[in-house]
Amino acid sequence: MAAAKRVVTVVGATGAQGGSVVDHLLKKKSQDYTIRAVTRSPDSAAAKALAACGIQVVQADLTDTAALRAAFAGSYAVFAVTNFWGLFKDAQKEISADQNVSLAADKAVALETEMGINMANAALATDTLQHYFWSTLTDAYTVTGGKSQPPHYDSKARVTRYIKSKPELLAKTTFVWCAYYATNLGWDFIKPVYFPAIGQYIQIQATPSDQPIACIGNTRSNFGAFVEAALVQPEKIRGGQTVFAFVERSTLGGLLKIWAEAHDVRATYVQIPRDTFFSTWPAIALEFTLGMELWQLVRDKEWTGEDSFLTYTDLGIDITALKSVKDSFAELEL
């Protein structure tokens, strides 16, 4: 009798990171695993497409602890992720014009923290669990000595600290950091704008062009390779090890140059005062830029702030087989 396949449960399976994990497991290890997709909307077209591929699709809201425990039950591995930006946008809709916009960030932080801890507790309650992946970011406040605390970093760091306080779960955990998305250049306040009078694109930002950055490229295409590679090396990767998922290091100006080459256009990076930038764009631009300023603050150190972390080299990933940053930019509309 054939051995039962190990169940790998993927939260956010219809999103960029979770969807990429599912894609890579299907392509490389589907014969070894039963993939279980956790989604809020099992009746969506994306969820139905997963079911058509033979994937188990289960419904669970990340605020529903009972549903999460049921979704994780029997899992060998769980990939857990949250979406701060979706929570932030939803919170903004609830904030009236006369209220401080920082309340939206506070609400998103509180909810994302709750969701992350809910998943950690569900993982703790899963007696079959051997490997837990938590998609997080660096502890900005600690790394910068209290100089920076972007909300979308802080909420994830709170969950990371919670996991580290649970030795039983920490022993099974791999922390995964996903670097700068290529699709960020499609956001309104980041996207280069064409000026016919000078025949080129201008990208206006509040951070300097020489700021170092690491980029994952196309998240949906590339991110899952890091989780899949870690999954088959549990003894090397668990125990609170950190995987930094990126395919190329550059600068913000360097990324714009790659973007311009991908589209065969001319482009110039222009830095303006942060107050001017924030007076022009909505609150989400402020929140995103706080994260960019973190990279600037720690430019002479590792953004991660960790003594050690694992990259594609350590995991044995051939990044030439992944989508390059240039090819990822080429997919974006001008």
Rank of each mutant, 00 (worst) to 15 (best):
A37T: 02
K156R: 15
G145Q: 05
K236V: 05
I237P: 01
A66P: 07
A214H: 13
Q31A: 08
T311K: 10
F133P: 00
K156W: 11
S102M: 15
T144L: 11
F246T: 06
D106L: 14
G186Y: 11
T207R: 05
E114T: 15
Q56K: 12
S102C: 12
K89N: 14
T138N: 03
V101T: 14
L169E: 10
V57L: 03
T138K: 01
K107G: 06
A16N: 04
K172H: 08
S30A: 08
S221D: 15
G254H: 02
E94M: 15
A70R: 15
Q205C: 13
Y181I: 03
Y194Q: 06
L87A: 06
S102P: 00
A91G: 11
T113C: 13
H152K: 10
V159G: 06
Q17E: 07
A225D: 06
N184S: 08
L310N: 12
T280E: 10
A171W: 03
T14M: 07
S165M: 12
G240R: 03
V298F: 14
V227Y: 12
T63K: 01
K93V: 11
E168S: 15
M1R: 03
G18I: 07
V78M: 07
A283M: 12
S221K: 13
I258V: 11
G253V: 00
K164H: 02
L26H: 06
A122V: 07
F277V: 01
A122G: 02
N100M: 11
A67T: 02
T144C: 12
A120G: 15
S209M: 05
M115N: 13
Y141W: 08
G253I: 01
A283Q: 15
K191N: 07
S328T: 10
Q296A: 03
A321H: 06
F223C: 02
L25N: 03
W187E: 05
E248Q: 15
A13Y: 09
R6P: 00
A105K: 13
I95W: 07
V101L: 14
V8H: 08
A108M: 12
E114R: 15
E168D: 14
A285F: 05
C178H: 02
I213R: 04
V8N: 00
G12N: 05
V57T: 04
F226Q: 07
G224S: 10
V109A: 09
A66N: 07
T219Y: 07
P234G: 08
A45R: 02
S328V: 13
A104M: 03
A45F: 02
Q99A: 00
A2N: 11
G145S: 11
Q130L: 09
A225K: 04
F88P: 01
V243G: 01
S20N: 10
A91Y: 13
F244Y: 00
A267T: 10
V10Q: 07
R40L: 00
K156C: 13
A104Y: 05
V247G: 04
V243H: 01
F88I: 06
Q17I: 00
T142Y: 06
L137S: 02
W259G: 04
H152F: 10
G145P: 09
R266C: 05
H152Q: 14
Y141G: 01
Y269G: 04
L169S: 02
E235W: 08
R6T: 03
Q205K: 07
R299L: 08
G224Y: 02
A47C: 10
E293M: 08
V81T: 15
T268I: 14
Q296S: 08
T219P: 04
T242L: 14
G18E: 07
R249C: 09
